Measured scan of single mutants.
Amino acid sequence: GSLMYASIFGNVSAIIQRLYSGTARYHTQMLRVREFIRFHQIPNPLRQRLEEYFQHAWSYTNGIDMNAVLKGFPECLQADICLHLNRSLLQHCKPFRGATKGCLRALAMKFKTTHAPPGDTLVHAGDLLTALYFISRGSIEILRGDVVVAILGKNDIFGEPLNLYARPGKSNGDVRALTYCDLHKIHRDDLLEVLDMYPEFSDHFWSSLEITFNLRDTNMIPGSPGSTELEGGFSRQRKRKLSFRRRTDKDTEQPGEVSALGPGRAGAGPSSRGRPGGPWGESPSSGPSSPESSEDEGPGRSSSPLRLVPFSSPRPPGEPPGGEPLMEDCEKSSDTCNPLSGAFSGVSNIFSFWGDSRGRQYQELPRCPAPTPSLLNIPLSSPGRRPRGDVESRLDALQRQLNRLETRLSADMATVLQLLQRQMTLVPPAYSAVTTPGPGPTSTSPLLPVSPLPTLTLDSLSQVSQFMACEELPPGAPELPQEGPTRRLSLPGQLGALTSQPLHRHGSDPGS
């Protein structure tokens, strides 16, 4: 009898404990919600809404976190579960008819179910419309201010047509639940991603989709105040780019002037030289400038040598048109050559190039014969006009050509200096018209024969001689050997007369 009593008592207590286990969990969670309300000092109306929603959600799901349970299964099984949970929507909604099984599984994985109690606001006026909503159960109302403009029910759709707008718009009203509602919502990016994977279904979906109420604000059109608020930074940046392009296009129409201050000032006329910023005076940081632009901040801005204009002085008759350009485009679109090309026009420029290279940067340069637009006047290309890779490749080509020119210049200078040193070592320090008596009659020769300089066969020296023939050397430049009979510069000019005159010897006659 005691054994029977113990078994009955144990079973009854276990049954009672299981009955009250759900209630215990409910009270535990309710205590957490109330502690949250007390800690954050939530006001009474919002506090009442929180408690009511918790009670309804507990009775609806029995305190089970559906998302946590669903995430515990593998992905393939999750797709089947989501397809079952959203079967009513996918079967009865017209846009989803005719979709393949794979497309429906992908869509079912992207849908999220939302449960809303009465009085809950789903979308506020001015919120971004980031999702498309399908009503599965219940009814909602749409308000503009305090005026109800629409009441939607089961199988209705609200949001915005995503295929017509590249960016999400703003809501033009509040969406509030009238009863307990079940909503299926899919985010904008998720829907577009699935439709991109199934393009054959995309056309059918957009053609058959009928949005019951379009929440997009109709005033959000390009150029409206609301649109400016939504895309303020983007609009200002776009206007700045367009104004920069218009100014650079105007600059290219004036090829007669070359400016070292950047493309923003290349198009300024002579009357605007004294102004601080020219056409860019209202925004000094709008356009890029070269490193020399920092010198323009000092006094005497109108007389600054940074602004270059072609000189009108005539060229000498024998002067060549100019050196070879550094870039391939210089032959086609440049009416002034790079300062480095002028360094190779003569030997005198070679000796004085490194010492006063900055001073020569603004000297007169030889002109190319074609009066085409200036290379320095070409505006900086924006990322939309020329690819970045093209600019980098041009810079690399320019750097390689500069290296080759520097190597060639160093070799030419070394060769010229070597020839000058050899000339100085071969010439005796001094010569006299009267020579010392020699031991015999073989001493009648006034000077030792001097062998002429070897013929220069280097390509670089031939180019130097060509430049010497075309360029007029300055007075202080050293002379180079030329073709024809060679003669030492330090010898007297009348050596031929010395050989014809008898030598005057000093000596005593033994017979006297």
Rank of each mutant, 00 (worst) to 15 (best):
G126T: 01
D127T: 03
L128R: 10
L128E: 10
L129R: 02
L129T: 02
T130Y: 13
T130I: 08
A131F: 13
L132M: 07
L132C: 03
Y133H: 14
F134G: 02
F134L: 02
I135N: 01
S136K: 08
R137I: 04
S139L: 06
S139Q: 12
I140Q: 01
E141S: 13
E141V: 05
E141I: 05
E141Q: 09
I142E: 01
I142Q: 01
L143M: 09
L143K: 09
V147L: 10
V148A: 08
V148Y: 02
I151E: 04
I151N: 06
I151H: 05
G153M: 10
G153N: 09
K154R: 12
K154H: 08
D156L: 02
D156E: 03
I157T: 09
F158H: 01
F158D: 01
P161K: 07
P161V: 03
L162G: 08
L164A: 09
L164R: 14
R167Q: 13
R167A: 12
R167C: 08
P168R: 03
G169C: 02
S171Y: 01
S171M: 02
S171W: 01
N172D: 06
G173A: 12
D174R: 07
D174K: 06
R176S: 03
R176L: 06
T179F: 02
C181G: 03
C181R: 02
D182A: 10
D182K: 13
D182G: 08
D182M: 15
H184G: 06
I186R: 02
I186K: 01
I186V: 08
H187K: 09
H187A: 11
R188A: 08
D189W: 08
D189L: 04
D189M: 05
D190C: 03
L191F: 03
L191R: 02
L192V: 09
E193D: 06
L195Q: 03
M197E: 09
M197N: 06
Y198F: 09
P199V: 03
E200L: 03
F201K: 01
F201P: 03
S202I: 10
D203H: 12
D203A: 15
H204D: 11
S207E: 04
S208V: 10
S208C: 09
L209G: 02
L209H: 03
E210D: 09
I211R: 02
I211G: 03
F213W: 08
N214C: 09
N214R: 01
N214K: 02
L215K: 01
T218V: 14
T218Q: 10
N219S: 11
M220N: 11
I221P: 10
I221F: 12
P222G: 11
P222V: 12
S224T: 12
G226N: 11
G226T: 11
S227Q: 13
E229N: 12
L230G: 09
L230V: 11
L230C: 10
E231R: 10
G232Q: 09
G232T: 11
G233S: 09
G233W: 06
F234W: 10
R236V: 13
Q237R: 11
R238C: 15
K239D: 14
K241P: 10
K241I: 13
L242H: 07
L242Q: 15
S243L: 09
S243N: 11
R245M: 14
R245E: 08
R245P: 14
R247M: 13
R247D: 12
R247V: 10
T248I: 12
D249T: 12
K250S: 12
K250D: 13
K250F: 13
K250N: 13
T252K: 11
E253R: 10
E253G: 08
Q254K: 08
P255G: 07
P255N: 12
P255V: 10
V258E: 13
P263S: 10
G264F: 04
G267I: 13
A268V: 12
G269E: 12
P270R: 08
S271T: 10
S272N: 03
R273F: 06
R273D: 15
R273A: 10
P279M: 07
P279T: 05
S283K: 06
S283P: 10
S283Y: 03
S283R: 06
P284L: 10
P284M: 15
P284W: 15
P284A: 15
P284T: 11
S285Q: 13
S289F: 13
P291M: 03
P291T: 06
S293G: 07
D296I: 11
E297I: 10
E297G: 11
E297P: 05
G298W: 08
G298E: 07
R301A: 12
R301Q: 15
S302N: 13
S302K: 13
S304N: 03
S304T: 05
R307E: 10
R307H: 13
P310A: 12
F311G: 07
F311P: 15
S313L: 09
P314H: 04
P314I: 13
R315M: 03
P316I: 08
P317G: 15
P317I: 15
P321N: 13
P321T: 04
G323N: 15
G323C: 12
G323H: 09
D329H: 15
E331Y: 07
K332I: 10
K332G: 09
K332D: 11
S334G: 11
S334Q: 09
D335P: 10
N338A: 13
N338R: 12
N338W: 08
S341R: 10
S341L: 05
F344A: 12
S345D: 11
S348L: 04
S348H: 08
I350E: 04
F351N: 12
F351T: 12
S352N: 08
F353R: 12
G355A: 08
G355T: 08
D356A: 13
G359K: 07
R360G: 07
R360F: 14
Q361F: 12
Y362R: 11
Q363P: 09
Q363M: 15
E364A: 11
L365M: 13
L365V: 12
R367K: 12
R367P: 08
C368V: 09
C368R: 15
C368Q: 13
P369W: 04
A370Y: 11
T372H: 14
L375D: 09
N377M: 05
N377A: 10
P379D: 08
P379G: 11
S382P: 01
S382M: 05
P383S: 11
R385K: 11
R385E: 04
R385N: 15
R386M: 12
R386P: 08
P387S: 12
V391S: 03
V391P: 06
E392H: 14
E392N: 15
E392W: 15
E392A: 06
S393M: 12
R394N: 08
R394W: 09
D396E: 10
A397H: 15
Q399H: 01
Q399K: 15
R400D: 15
Q401N: 06
L402R: 03
R404T: 04
R404A: 06
R404Q: 05
E406D: 10
R408M: 09
R408E: 03
R408H: 05
L409M: 09
L409E: 03
L409V: 08
M413K: 01
M413L: 13
A414I: 05
T415M: 05
T415H: 06
L417P: 04
Q418F: 13
L420V: 07
Q421A: 09
M424A: 09
T425M: 11
T425E: 07
L426I: 13
L426R: 10
L426P: 04
P428S: 15
P429E: 08
P429Q: 06
A430E: 12
A430F: 09
Y431N: 13
A433H: 10
V434I: 12
T435N: 10
T435C: 03
T435H: 12
P439I: 05
T442D: 12
T442K: 04
S443G: 08
T444I: 13
S445H: 08
S445G: 12
P446F: 08
L448V: 07
P449K: 09
S451H: 10
S451Y: 14
P452Q: 10
L453R: 10
P454L: 06
T457Q: 10
L458T: 12
L458Y: 14
L458Q: 11
L461E: 15
S462I: 12
Q463E: 15
Q463D: 08
V464W: 13
S465N: 12
Q466Y: 06
M468V: 07
M468C: 14
A469T: 13
A469E: 11
E471G: 12
E471Y: 06
E472W: 04
L473I: 13
L473H: 11
P475R: 13
P475A: 10
G476N: 12
E479R: 10
L480C: 09
Q482F: 13
L491T: 06
P492Y: 11
P492D: 11
G493Y: 11
Q494W: 11
Q494P: 13
A497P: 09
A497T: 10
A497I: 07
S500L: 13
Q501I: 07
P502E: 10
P502V: 06
L503E: 13
H504G: 11
R505I: 10
R505Y: 08
R505G: 10
H506T: 12
G507M: 11
S508G: 08
S508P: 09
D509L: 12
D509A: 09
G511S: 10
